[in-house]
């Protein structure tokens, strides 16, 4: 048998452990990769498990301490339409593909596919999002940044399924999200960047950035971010070169590297200039 259709999570985890069947959520990546042609059924190299019916993996909720929990089967449309979802994730979800793709593609699938150009890992890594990975024997938590280890590579074990994404509330006064694609709709990221800043009493209390489509996986550097964290806003301008150079060193774009490096540098420095000039709290694009 080459396809399993479990009706609940326990059944799915038993099948997963026994057969190592690959979980298929929306199918927007897997169905395309296995496509054979008109009228011909897709051919998969491994057994497949259609997980669309697992209600345990659906929905978006906020826990008492403010932690946002997004079920791995939540579609991009559901995420984009839910105002409780933190801004950069919601924005990234709203810019994925076009309407019908967003109605089908899931957050779990986007993470498991681990494409360097995938839209959701980038803001998730900015916000230190964690995954709950379930297997029949255990459950473990792992940061999205540690889960994706390279282009199309993750540490998902062959008995595990991504159950949900958990994001603790983050204190921030300023957000920036920008995706560069070739069109307004249906665009795959050429480059993407999100930034979070938290300014309190003139001090940059927190600063984070996350670069998509600029290497084998989403790039983030706490070391580079530390250059700016704790600095008074009045001193930010004098550290822009040091920061953007440090950031540039973590990027490893495989194609059009000069374009990707220069565009990233400009987006970062434009935002930092605004911040140093006392930009109002809010969302910047």
């Amino acid at each position: 048998m080459n396809c399993y259709i479990p009706e609940n999570l326990t059944e799915a985890l038993e099948i997963r452990k026994k057969t190592h069947a690959v979980p298929m959520a929306g199918g927007t990546d897997l169905m395309v990769q296995a496509k054979k042609g008109i009228g011909i059924n897709p051919a998969f190299k491994t057994p497949i498990m259609i997980i669309s019916y697992l209600s345990e993996l659906k929905g978006i909720k906020v826990e008492d301490d403010g932690t946002l929990v997004i079920g791995s089967l939540a579609t991009s449309s559901e995420i984009a339409d839910d105002e409780r979802v933190f801004y950069p994730i919601r924005k990234a979800a709203s810019l994925m593909g076009a309407v019908s793709l967003r109605n089908t593609a899931t957050i779990g699938g986007n993470i498991a596919n681990a494409s360097p150009k995938g839209d959701l890992p980038q803001p998730l890594i900015l916000l230190d999002a964690e995954l709950v990975l379930s297997s029949i024997d255990r459950e473990r938590m792992i940061k999205v940044d540690d889960f994706i280890i390279g282009a199309k590579k993750t540490v998902l074990q062959d008995d595990e399924i991504i159950k949900e994404v958990r994001i603790k509330p983050v204190k921030a006064t300023h957000y920036f999200y920008h995706k560069i694609g070739t069109r307004k709709a249906n665009a795959i990221s050429k480059l993407s960047l999100s930034i979070l800043a938290d300014v309190e009493d003139g001090i940059l209390k927190d600063f984070r950035a996350s670069s998509g489509a600029s290497g084998d996986k989403v790039k983030r550097s706490r070391d580079a971010e530390m250059i700016l964290i704790g600095k008074p806003i009045s001193e930010i301008a004098s550290h822009i070169d040091e920061f953007t150079s440090a950031w540039d060193r973590i990027l490893s774009p495989h194609a059009m590297p000069q374009y990707r490096r220069e565009s990233t540098r400009r987006m970062l420095s434009d935002f930092l200039i605004k911040l140093s000039e006392g930009a109002e709290p809010g969302i910047y694009e």
Binding site: G27, V32, I50, G97, N103, T104
Partner: peptide, 28 residues
């Protein structure tokens, strides 16, 4: 045939989807 062009659009549970990337196992 890759869910990009919309020619195969159908309405599934009230939402627009592309039928070329949906397996029959997901429409029960």
């Amino acid at each position: 045939g890759e869910g990009e062009c919309g020619a195969c659009s159908v309405i599934k549970d009230g939402k627009l989807v592309t039928s070329c990337i949906i397996p029959m196992g997901a429409v029960n």
